[in-house]
Nucleic acid binder design. Structure first.
Lengths: 258, 258
DNA sequence: GAGTGGTCTAGACCACCTA
DNA sequence: AGGTGGTCTAGACCACTCC
């Protein structure tokens, strides 16, 4: 850049990032608009291409723009968020015949579907075993992995663990469990009715693996939810980890103060 | 790099990042250890310094290392997470005389404190007004801003909005509300007992402002929680936005299935 | 003062998309 | 084919930390 206008002593990349950010927030660059190319920005501002590139990275990291290889850099469109609520397990919604995720997609006019990745007998990781209160001599569980899609976007990776003793010999071992109320319908028939939930929520950047599976653009974090189902006896019997794209989804909890 | 060993055709920066990642995960580089400097890494691997730098950025973005200007790059130590639970509003904890955040800090042996940033009469943003069911002719609210600290780290920025009619003329306008049960103690005396909560949770990268206030390292997302308090009449009367460092904090919900 | 990360330059080639 | 972003090089200077 020719000179730090207005006595702005910050790095040129930050100044350019701020200029572009203002253009976006003022609406001068509306959602979906294409920014000038890195080479154009560099020439216009009298800086090296790498410096313009650094400015764009700053914007991409805060989620304002998205770079598309070979096409250009675009202002990220506002997206509607799929908000998974704690009422997702409520018997109230059973008569819709839809699982909670699909119901939420339908509300937002999106086509939801899910895919079964694997159904396997495994030794669960320590944090899962602890929350399921599995004793060391029964350290065996059924693990089911799914991916949930809304339209063309993968939104959540969902991994469920069940104590092996509970799952063995049931339809839970099949890819399609074939019960109108899903796996919780089968678990109810086996005497475990979900009475309380215990959810632990974290946010973090995705692992390289997750970045690929969820088609995450750089700078988008994930919500990591560890859900434990508690039965009428107060005992845990099912655990699910949701890894959710934070740009497309969120959570909602409605609960009494106890 | 001299040649893509083992036919690995990925960029050199990714290969170096993976090599370092393995060293960290195997314990060869334990928490707190200093990595070789960028210049050393470049020379050792026969790559340009910028390429070594890119590898380190990949690791920093996934939270594995932290770069300290003038000192070096260090393996990020495992950190204990302050998990804010929905029982934070429970009357059960009143006899401890501690607010929920301070209680959670105490449990983890940290020194918790909070700081009042501002107490002002404002026109609330649209999303806040809607959740508080403020009508357009009473669009006025008291806003209180706080920062919560654990030891030397700022952990949460907390902003509370109250309908002006509810706050006017009360101790809520003062910096220190001077009630043993905090603002909710005063609100109860004014006839609003928290009966239910409605929390909406998102994760995102911080704004530049938040990055500064929360002293966030690059690649650390925030949890953004919009909490609404519902009284015995089922009406909302208080709204709080928590912006929490995701590397130091999380959430927990224990709730009945209704 | 020596060493570190942070920023920047002015080039180069590659991978990808659009036409 | 031409333009785009992705990666890389081989330098340079600055800001910060530590001795």
């Amino acid at each position: 850049m020719t000179s730090p206008e207005g006595g702005d002593r910050r790095p040129a990349s930050e100044r350019l990032a701020d200029e572009l950010r203002r253009s976006i927030e003022s609406g001068e660059l509306p959602a979906g608009a294409k920014l000038s190319s890195e080479r154009e920005l560099a020439e216009l501002h009298g800086i090296a291409r790498n410096t313009a590139r650094q400015a764009i990275r700053l914007l991409a990291e805060s989620g304002l723009v998205i770079a598309e290889h070979g096409r250009g850099v675009f202002v990220r469109p506002a997206i509607s968020v799929i908000r998974l609520g704690n009422d997702r397990y409520s018997p109230r919604y059973r008569d819709t015949g839809l699982s909670p995720f699909l119901l939420e997609c339908a509300k937002q006019g999106k086509a939801g579907r899910f895919e079964v990745l694997s159904v396997e007998r495994v030794t669960p990781p320590a944090d899962v075993a602890a929350r399921l209160k599995l004793s060391p001599d029964t350290l065996s569980a059924l693990r089911r992995e799914n991916v949930f899609w809304a339209d063309a976007d993968p939104v959540q990776r969902v991994t469920t663990w069940l104590p092996w003793a509970l799952a063995d010999g049931t339809a839970l071992l099949r890819d399609e469990v074939g019960h109108p109320f899903g796996i919780h319908g089968i678990l109810e028939e086996r005497g475990h009715t979900m009475t309380r939930i215990h959810d632990e929520i974290s946010a973090r950047m995705p692992t390289p693996d997750e970045r690929e599976h969820l088609q995450l653009s750089p700078g988008v974090p994930v919500l990591d939810v560890l859900h434990t189902s508690i039965d009428t006896e107060g005992e845990p019997y099912e655990l699910t980890r949701f890894v959710m794209r934070a740009d497309l989804s969120g959570l909602r909890y409605d609960a009494p103060v106890e």
